[in-house]
Simulated assay, not measured.
Amino acid sequence: MIEQIIAEIAACSSFLITTHENPDGDAVGSSLALANHLRRLGKDVTVHYCDPVPDIYRFLPLADTVVPSIPDRDYDVCFVLDVGEFRRAGKELAGFKRIGKFINIDHHLSCEEFGALNLIDSQACATGALIYRIIKAAGHEVDYDTALCIYTAVITDTGSFRYSNSNPEAFSIAGEMIARGVNAWFIAERLYESQPRQRLELLALALATLEVSPRGDLAAIAVTLEMYEKTGTNAELTDGFVNYPRSIRGVEVAVFFREIEPGFYKVGFRSKGKVDVSSLAANFGGGGHHNAAGCNMAGTLDEVKQTVFARLQHVM
């Protein structure tokens, strides 16, 4: 499959690159890594996200070129990265007809094969690792700008090498990116030590909603639209919130309820390994990885919580 993708890159000249809604570090890192690499090859590249680039990733090369709307023109290929499901790339892409073919690159366990070519490896630590494999298989060196993006993809999706997907390839890629000139402290400072004060104010409100099950193996927090209004924040600043209930001793599954619009919630699941939360999310029309998954649910916060907690009782 990688050889076929390399052949498409060589044969084509215009590329659209996109990823999922509310892009995380792997989504941004992998898409900008690919964009930097393709531009270095002299290709015509457009990067489109249906949601803005989160502030903490705007230091990455080409982050300032990401467009909110797809230009009305033809593209030979559209790379769709890290989405799991095609719908997560946004409604605009779904209705855009001026694309020759789709290439789907992903590491989600339950990924749709919607592309003409589908490079899916659930054992990969991050989609950024798959972009790395493509570049190396083509016989190209990873330049500094691309290395910054790949390193960011890997370090964020492995939780700074704390998650179970921190496999030998993850450490090997990170080591090579550092050898290419990436400064680990430079990245860590921008990702973890440059938070706006409002994020901590929002986190304080979220932690006040903490619930822990009687057995201590399930914990949950929530963020509502009212909290955003009170702190002057938005969903962009909630990245990583689910890790706080997950960090409690004895907790096996953490749940993060995030209100998207009145009566509609994004539910994020994180597991320490004993529970497959991708199967859990699939029961509610979502998906993801064994240890990290999510879905969308309608109802009041109490109703959504009751439904999720009742299901969790059957699998824990």
Rank of each mutant, 00 (worst) to 15 (best):
E3G: 14
Q4V: 01
I6M: 15
I6W: 01
I6G: 13
I9Y: 03
A11L: 15
S14R: 11
S14E: 06
L16N: 08
I17A: 06
T19Q: 03
G25W: 04
A27R: 04
V28T: 04
A35H: 04
H37Y: 15
G42Q: 08
P54F: 02
Y57T: 05
R58Y: 07
F59L: 08
P61M: 10
D64A: 07
V67C: 05
S69K: 13
S69N: 11
I70M: 00
P71L: 11
V77N: 07
L81C: 05
G84D: 05
L93I: 15
A94P: 12
G95R: 05
K97H: 13
I99N: 01
G100K: 10
F102H: 02
I103Q: 04
N104L: 09
H107S: 08
H107K: 10
L109D: 01
G115Y: 03
N118H: 02
L119E: 01
I120K: 00
Q123S: 15
C125G: 09
A126G: 02
A126F: 02
T127F: 03
A129W: 01
L130G: 00
Y132F: 14
K136V: 14
A137N: 13
G139W: 11
D143L: 14
A153T: 04
V154N: 08
T156H: 09
A170K: 06
I173M: 09
G175M: 14
R180V: 00
N183A: 11
Q195V: 09
P196Q: 10
L203H: 05
A206H: 06
T209P: 00
L210R: 14
V212Q: 07
P214C: 07
G216W: 13
A219E: 03
I221G: 00
V223G: 00
T224C: 00
M227N: 04
T231V: 14
T231Q: 01
L237P: 02
D239P: 07
N243T: 07
S247Q: 10
F256S: 06
G288A: 11
N291H: 13
C295S: 10
G299K: 04
G299M: 09
L301Y: 08
E303L: 07
A310F: 08
L312R: 03
